[in-house]
């Protein structure tokens, strides 16, 4: 979709500052010099077209009590669809990308406990028959930039 200048201003503003007040859209309208109806119509359009993936709270998975990791495995070209279907079937798998490396399938996994993490990886190994899975939980986070959405709400 084409974004006009007010769409862009709105997106810039709400990426970091959606007001936590009873009438947040009216507040945004005042800031941007338009009406609440206009803001609501624009947001609806931006959400429906997929420009906005989620509006509202982006949670910190660790603070919520979840455990996460980044995993990678080597999948033969002819098995990519089938293996991706197994991996993607877990709701805690939020991102899965093919990358140009012998370890070609990279996914993030978020689950309620460390035990669940191990159990899920074991099940993936069993169902795909691929034993060699790199399991790379973050030991330290130096930066998560808030105005890019690439996995920031995953914190795996």
């Amino acid at each position: 979709m084409t974004l006009d200048s007010l769409d862009k201003q709105l997106l810039n503003l709400i990426q970091s500052h959606l007001p936590i007040v009873p009438e947040p859209y009216r507040k945004l309208a005042e800031t941007l010099g338009t009406t609440e109806e206009d803001i609501l119509a624009r947001l609806k359009r931006l959400i429906e077209s997929g420009v906005i993936r989620r509006l509202g709270a982006i949670f910190d998975s660790r603070q919520v009590g979840y455990s996460g990791t980044l995993c990678a495995l080597k999948v033969p070209a002819e098995r990519i669809k089938e293996v991706a279907a197994v991996i993607n079937s877990f709701p805690g798998v939020t991102h899965n990308y093919l990358r140009d490396h012998p370890y070609n399938m990279w996914f993030t996994l978020l689950v309620e406990s460390p035990a669940r993490l191990e159990a899920t990886l074991e099940e993936i190994k069993k169902r795909t028959g691929i034993e060699d899975i790199l399991h790379l939980p973050a030991s330290r986070i130096f930066k998560i930039r808030v105005n890019f959405d690439l996995g920031e709400d995953e914190n795996a």
């Binding site: 979709m1 974004l3 862009k8 997106l11 709400i14 990426q15 970091s16 500052h17 959606l18 936590i20 007040v21 009873p22 931006l46 997929g50 420009v51 906005i52 993936r53 989620r54 509006l55 509202g56 709270a57 982006i58 949670f59 910190d60 603070q63 919520v64 998560i144 808030v146 105005n147 890019f148 959405d149 690439l150 920031e152 709400d153 914190n155």
Partner: peptide
């Protein structure tokens, strides 16, 4: 609810209250 959302944001349970945007589109 507003107090709870504020509290979550202050404690870091909510990392950010805003929009998650597909940056490819920007």
């Amino acid at each position: 609810l507003l107090a709870k959302v504020q509290d979550f944001a202050e404690r870091g349970v909510i990392r950010r209250f805003g929009a998650a945007v597909r940056h490819q589109d920007l």
